Amino acid sequence: MTWNFYETSIVKFNIENYLFIASDNQACEKLYAKHINCYVYMTDRNANKTSVYGTKQFIQKMHIRTYFILDALILGFTILF
């Protein structure tokens, strides 16, 4: 999904002010390899594993997303999620 969004939106509309956020180093490393901006906000040891809706792992992943969004909004950034 990230690569598709990057190609069909970021590149297509020549957007230069963007940053992808990840919860594991492996995801950012894949983006860095393609010269795409990425930042690891918080490392989650289950980030690269499939999680089932409602499970503890799923809820933890959603909390990381919520924390990041709140932090970014407090700092005055605009979020596209």
Rank of each mutant, 00 (worst) to 15 (best):
45 R>N: 13
76 G>V: 02
63 H>T: 15
65 R>W: 04
1 M>S: 10
47 A>R: 03
54 G>Y: 08
15 I>W: 06
63 H>P: 07
41 Y>Q: 03
16 E>M: 13
74 I>S: 06
79 I>G: 04
42 M>P: 07
70 L>E: 12
11 V>K: 12
31 L>I: 06
70 L>P: 04
44 D>M: 08
44 D>T: 07
70 L>C: 10
15 I>V: 09
58 F>P: 03
37 N>P: 00
54 G>M: 08
23 S>F: 12
64 I>A: 05
66 T>E: 14
2 T>C: 06
29 E>R: 04
40 V>S: 01
69 I>Y: 01
46 N>I: 11
39 Y>N: 00
10 I>W: 02
30 K>A: 15
24 D>M: 07
56 K>C: 06
50 T>R: 08
62 M>Q: 13
25 N>P: 01
5 F>G: 07
71 D>G: 09
50 T>A: 10
49 K>S: 14
22 A>C: 04
51 S>W: 10
70 L>M: 08
50 T>L: 12
43 T>K: 13
39 Y>G: 02
40 V>I: 08
5 F>T: 08
14 N>A: 10
76 G>N: 01
41 Y>I: 04
9 S>E: 05
15 I>E: 01
26 Q>M: 07
22 A>K: 01
8 T>N: 15
41 Y>F: 13
29 E>Y: 03
59 I>K: 07
11 V>A: 06
45 R>C: 12
39 Y>W: 04
62 M>A: 12
68 F>Q: 01
23 S>Y: 06
17 N>C: 00
75 L>E: 14
80 L>R: 13
10 I>S: 00
29 E>N: 04
57 Q>R: 13
20 F>M: 01
2 T>Q: 06
34 K>G: 07
66 T>R: 15
9 S>P: 02
57 Q>E: 15
19 L>Y: 00
52 V>K: 10
25 N>G: 03
74 I>V: 12
1 M>P: 08
67 Y>A: 11
24 D>L: 08
54 G>R: 03
7 E>H: 06
35 H>T: 13
52 V>N: 02
60 Q>G: 11
66 T>A: 15
37 N>V: 04
14 N>P: 05
49 K>Q: 14
24 D>H: 09
66 T>N: 13
8 T>Q: 14
54 G>C: 10
14 N>Y: 09
7 E>R: 08
73 L>R: 10
59 I>G: 03
8 T>D: 13
6 Y>R: 03
6 Y>S: 01
61 K>G: 15
48 N>A: 09
23 S>M: 08
10 I>E: 00
15 I>R: 03
48 N>Y: 10
26 Q>V: 12
60 Q>T: 15
27 A>C: 10
26 Q>C: 07
46 N>L: 13
72 A>K: 10
24 D>G: 11
60 Q>E: 14
47 A>E: 00
17 N>M: 02
40 V>L: 04
3 W>T: 09
18 Y>I: 06
52 V>C: 04
32 Y>L: 02
60 Q>Y: 13
59 I>S: 11
65 R>K: 12
61 K>H: 14
67 Y>T: 10
41 Y>A: 04
13 F>H: 09
43 T>H: 13
29 E>S: 05
71 D>E: 12
23 S>P: 07
18 Y>E: 00
7 E>L: 08
49 K>G: 12
7 E>F: 05
3 W>V: 12
58 F>E: 02
80 L>I: 15
67 Y>K: 08
36 I>A: 02
34 K>F: 09
15 I>C: 02
76 G>Q: 00
64 I>F: 10
3 W>M: 12
30 K>M: 15
65 R>T: 09
